[in-house]
């Protein structure tokens, strides 16, 4: 019995040491930088060229899983929700020749996309929804990005518990992809508050955190380094890859 206890506690100490060692390796900045080098390799090899699989209505999740940050609960979002988003304006500005301020009605008249695609979460799960909306390319064509433009940044209305706003970014190639869309409808109905109303991004060629919800402003820019921690998105600032195709 004593011997078993001794062995068990020995094993426990060895196992605790295992975590300590792997935590220390993980916290080493030189190692972290070296490991990050795989991202640009994956971005170069995989890119955002292909078309995500399109599903039939039979495959669709009627109750599409709600995830991400909590639905905005501030007074300005409550006002938008109360007036059915009739006072919502989507600014498209920054490095563009013709800055826009689009109403939801204007966006609805531009709807040309309607596809059921799979949402692949970075956590590992997947869900299928039928999304309808405006290809991002159509909105950008209205605003005409200038020569120095390289990125499209999405400023969102939801916030982390510490108050940091959600944001995301795509390069112009990813933004021009025909399946990169500003979604207005999910499963045949206007987006509800929990799914990112009135406008959310859908980019099925990359992981779910790229598909930002509750978009409040679209900014075209030469870079995103000046924003927050500088990695181009809320989750990117927490250590996730900017290129989320894998």
């Amino acid at each position: 019995m004593k011997r078993a206890l001794f062995l068990a506690s020995g094993a426990a100490i060895a196992l605790a040491g295992c975590s300590k060692a792997s935590n220390a390796l993980n916290d080493n900045q030189t190692i972290r930088r070296a490991l990050s080098s795989a991202e640009s390799l994956n971005h170069t090899l995989i890119g955002t060229h292909g078309r995500a699989k399109v599903y039939s209505d039979a495959d669709v999740d009627r109750e599409f899983r709600v995830n991400g940050f909590d639905t905005p609960s501030d007074s300005s979002y409550a006002r938008l929700l109360a007036d059915g988003f009739s006072s919502y304006r989507l600014p498209v500005d920054g490095l563009v020749e013709r800055p826009q301020k689009l109403t939801l009605a204007e966006l609805r008249t531009m709807r040309s996309y309607d596809e059921a695609t799979r949402h692949d979460c970075v956590e590992g799960w997947s869900a299928i929804g039928r999304w309808a909306g405006v290809p991002l390319a159509s909105v950008l064509a209205l605003a005409k990005p200038s020569q120095s433009a390289r990125y499209v940044i999405f400023h969102c209305m939801d916030r982390a518990s510490d108050g940091t706003p959600y944001y995301e970014s795509l390069d112009l190639t990813q933004a021009a992809h025909p399946q990169t869309v500003l979604a207005l409808d999910l499963n045949g109905k206007p987006l509800d508050a929990d799914h990112g109303a009135p406008v959310r991004l859908r980019i099925p060629t990359q992981l779910g955190y790229k598909s930002a919800k509750w978009i409040g402003r679209i900014e075209v820019a030469a870079d995103f380094k000046h924003l927050f921690a500088g990695h181009g998105g809320y989750w990117e600032d927490q250590g996730y890859e900017w290129y989320a195709g894998i």
Partner: peptide, 16 residues
Amino acid sequence: LPGYQDLASGRRWHLF
């Protein structure tokens, strides 16, 4: 790897 729960770090190790 790492010992504590941290998906972003796990992915970094894994994808490299």
